[in-house]
Simulated scan of single mutants.
Amino acid sequence: MYLIKNILIFLILVFSTMACSESSDLPKTQLAQIDAMLDEDFVKKDINVAYAKYSEEAKQGNPNAQLSLGMIYKRGSYGPERDFTKAVDWFRKSAQSGNPYAQYNLGLAYLFGQGVDENFEESYAWFMKAAMQGHANSQYEIASMYRAGEGVAKNETKAMEWMTKAADQEMAIAAYELGEMYEDGSAGAVNIKLAKKWYKKAADYGLSWGADKLVELQ
């Protein structure tokens, strides 16, 4: 159930990132900026020249180039064929330098078993490194793992703590799930007022489920 739910959430996050890259009203994430940079280099310029540039910079130890090269192999849409194993290798190099976006992608690799064996404990460890640096998606994943008790002992109180951190960064799905937690009292007493508050925020952040829940709770 947790894996199925995460696939759905992953798709939401992907489309949210795409929306950020297309709207001047929303702040661009680093990954959206990387997408724009890759599009510029690989679509408008010579693919071989662009790939050689990223490869050289990555081999010289540039964490952002390593992250970019990892994304190139993960997506398989910028020249080289998709290769999750190579993607993980470059994410790991960047992650070991402290890059939270690479740490997040490495966490996803272990969560879904892409390029490595599925390992929830390793996934949790890499998400936590990024979450401690304020990476909202990783904070959400940490909260989800505490809720499910996968990769770490189940702890609804810690789940709410991390879900709040992600929701405070205007992450719609985190705000929605925080509303659920207040509605069902999973981390304490039921609090419909706070549930409505977070469902409204989820709706304000663009998630229609939040608006649906507000109607349901009227």
Results as ranks from 00 to 15, higher is better:
K158Q: 12
G151A: 08
A131S: 10
A36H: 00
E121C: 10
G70E: 01
Q114L: 04
E56D: 03
E121Q: 13
N191W: 13
Y205F: 14
M160S: 12
Q169N: 07
S208M: 10
M1T: 06
K53I: 01
M181R: 00
I9A: 07
L26C: 14
E121F: 12
K86N: 10
I47E: 09
Y104I: 04
V152D: 03
Q30T: 03
M18T: 07
I192P: 12
W162L: 04
I192H: 08
Y146Q: 10
L26V: 11
A125E: 13
S24F: 14
E56L: 09
I72L: 09
M163I: 01
D83C: 10
Y78R: 06
Y51V: 00
L8V: 14
E180Q: 15
M18S: 09
I34P: 13
G206I: 11
Y101R: 02
G107L: 07
I192L: 15
C20H: 09
M37T: 09
G151L: 02
A130S: 07
I34N: 07
Q66W: 09
K59V: 10
A50G: 02
S55K: 10
P80G: 11
F10M: 07
A167F: 05
W198D: 08
A109K: 13
M37Y: 02
A95F: 05
A175Y: 01
K53L: 07
W126N: 06
K200W: 13
A174D: 11
N99V: 01
G107C: 06
V116P: 11
L3R: 06
V49H: 10
Y199Q: 02
M160N: 00
M71C: 11
P63Q: 03
K93P: 05
K93C: 12
L108A: 05
N155H: 12
K53P: 02
Y73F: 05
G188L: 05
D168N: 14
L67A: 00
L8F: 15
K86W: 10
A95T: 00
P100A: 01
L217H: 10
M171Y: 08
Y73G: 00
A102F: 12
L69P: 03
A19V: 10
